[in-house]
Design a protein around this nucleic acid. Structure first.
Lengths: 156, 156
DNA sequence: CCCCTTAGTTATGCGCCATAACGATAGAGG
DNA sequence: CCTCTATCGTTATGGCGCATAACTAAGGGG
């Protein structure tokens, strides 16, 4: 047994600093929220070898068969140069295929492999759980309002 | 003149992919929102040499004179090891001072220098502008609701 | 044919996050 | 007193997401 730990002793009431300069700043609150979101995601998904970026690619490939890399990059708001690396690792793991576009050997068309589809299925289940945990304590209306506010904020 | 650019030609109507699998995911929306927030911050603040983390430290030091590193790290949700590096660079630039706590030579008490206070003043003005831009298109109620939703999400 | 554009790739750096290993100081118990 | 443990901070290292610049390969218009 690891000894009782006096935790909050009589004298020192766990001096909490004044957080007011940051408390209502969108930038700060977004950072904390995303930190929580990422940690929650990681806790559930890392056993599957999935990161937010990797899952997003798989989801988009299912909804958009034979999509081009450039189109995918723009949709995900990822730079093509970074998408290249992401796709390379997914392809190495046999989760997707890159095939030259017919009549345009520059472009790569992407599609899931059976292994990719199988992983995606588990990823979707995990993500549903992650979203549930993140939305815990929110009503459906609050959830929808939050999504819309974030969409507005990121309008560009 | 850089040539008209046909942009969307007759044939190809700028094929927009199906984003529905990500459209209402909190994780995805948070990422985009934070991307926008960071870019907005950077645009205004980089001439001052400020990043979100650096400004957060300065703000907290003003509101909490003689705060300990560990307390600051916990408040900002930064690991002490990362805060060390952040503080080292701020101290090198003469923006703050680290002094041993009286009667406890392990602890460092932090305080702004005049240069730090001067930079903070400009940083606060810039941040007000950043927050204004981010909240553009939101009513004060929507803004408050968003802050509260983010707080709830990051409750931990 | 030459040139410019498009599509993707490679390399590199920054910001933030996390862990592990460590040095130094303080405090408690034998 | 002396040792053991806990606290405070530092160093080193790696991962993830983002950005830029420089490059190769391929298409297409004059």
């Amino acid at each position: 047994m690891p000894k009782p730990r006096r935790q909050a002793s009589a004298a020192a009431p766990a001096e909490a600093p004044d957080l007011s300069p940051l408390d209502t700043k969108l930038g700060f609150r977004l950072r904390l929220a995303q930190q929580t979101a990422f940690e929650t995601f990681h806790r559930t998904m890392s056993p599957l070898g999935l990161t937010p970026g990797r899952l997003a690619v798989l989801l988009m490939l299912e909804a958009n068969p034979a999509i081009r890399q450039g189109v995918l990059a723009e949709a995900l708001r990822i730079k093509p140069s970074n998408l290249t690396v992401l796709l390379a690792s997914l392809e190495e793991e046999g989760l997707l295929k890159r095939a030259e576009e017919e009549g345009n050997r520059r472009a790569n068309l992407l599609q899931l492999t059976p292994a990719g589809r199988a992983l995606l299925k588990r990823g979707k289940a995990g993500e549903a759980e992650v979203e549930r945990q993140l939305a815990e304590g929110m009503t459906p209306e609050e959830h929808a309002t939050l999504i819309n506010a974030l969409r507005l904020l990121a309008r560009g």
